[in-house]
């Protein structure tokens, strides 16, 4: 398991917090549609029986010893991938938003383009994704910021559906300042550092059950402010620096 015909080791990292209702469906989809990849669920101290369901399905499950929140749960998975010699990591959400068959598109794209990161984009072409207006505005804003400062168009900088190559796996697992929300800011930083990032259009669904980490009224606003602030700091940090990959 974990190897495709080209003997690449692929790991699908799924951070999960209280996703007992969705996780089994996600796992089954992955097993069916991208069966050469290993699956790793990072159980971020769920209060429900997420771990039990994951183990019942014969999938590896890392239990964080305290709730680290989304970003650091993902980083735990990336560290595991690095230590176990995986060539590619595909980040997927446990809420069923990301579709397993689309994950393969990311993997194929990273192989084809030899990019460091491939982002699954909802907005590159019209995929019919019913995006809330506030999120759409935010996405557009960060797309403009990234294009302004890195001259690279990233249509969906807030997408967590990504495929990373070994270089990025190594970088993310060793970096000390992995951000709390690894979205537009992290993409911008990687572009500043000279990593090659491409996008591929993917379909996504809306979550069926459970609560999103960006739910409510205050959380999205806080998220946008933090993202914006981090982008500004990055512009200052990398001002005048040459973009050479490490």
């Amino acid at each position: 398991m974990g190897k495709n015909a080209d003997v690449d080791k692929v790991l699908i990292v799924i951070p999960a917090y209280n996703e007992a209702d969705n996780i089994e469906k996600v796992i089954n989809e992955i097993k069916k549609d991208i069966n050469y990849a290993d699956i790793l669920v990072i159980n971020d101290c769920s209060k429900d029986n997420t771990e039990e369901i994951v183990r019942k399905n014969g999938v590896k499950c890392i239990n964080n010893i305290f709730n680290m929140r989304y970003a650091w749960a993902v980083q735990t998975g990336i560290k595991y991938a690095y230590q176990n010699g995986y060539d590619y990591v595909i980040q997927m959400d446990a809420d069923g938003q990301h579709i397993a068959s689309e994950a393969e598109k990311l993997y194929k794209e990273i192989k084809k383009t030899n990019a460091d990161i491939v982002i699954g984009s909802r907005y590159l072409v019209d995929t019919g994704y019913p995006c809330p207006l506030f999120r759409r505005i935010g996405t557009k804003l960060f797309e403009i910021i990234i294009r302004l400062f890195t001259h690279k168009k990233i249509a969906d900088p807030l997408s967590g559906f990504q495929c990373l190559n070994r270089d990025v796996i190594e970088y993310y697992s060793k970096v000390g300042n992995y951000p709390e929300f690894p979205d537009a800011n992290l993409i911008m930083e990687m572009l500043f550092k000279g990593y090659k990032i491409t996008e591929t259009p993917v379909k996504m669904r809306l979550r069926e059950t459970g609560e999103s980490m960006h739910g409510g009224f205050i959380k999205p606003i806080k998220y946008m402010i933090k993202q914006f602030y981090e982008c500004v700091v990055l512009v200052v940090k990398y001002f005048g620096k040459r973009r050479i990959k490490r």
Binding site: I62, N63, N64, I65, F66, M68, Q75, T76, Y80, G176
Partner: peptide
Amino acid sequence: NKKVTDLAQELSVVKEKVNE
């Protein structure tokens, strides 16, 4: 904070490896 997160992540990964 970073050190605690690092340690906790490392511990979680090691625990899973032992489990395996």
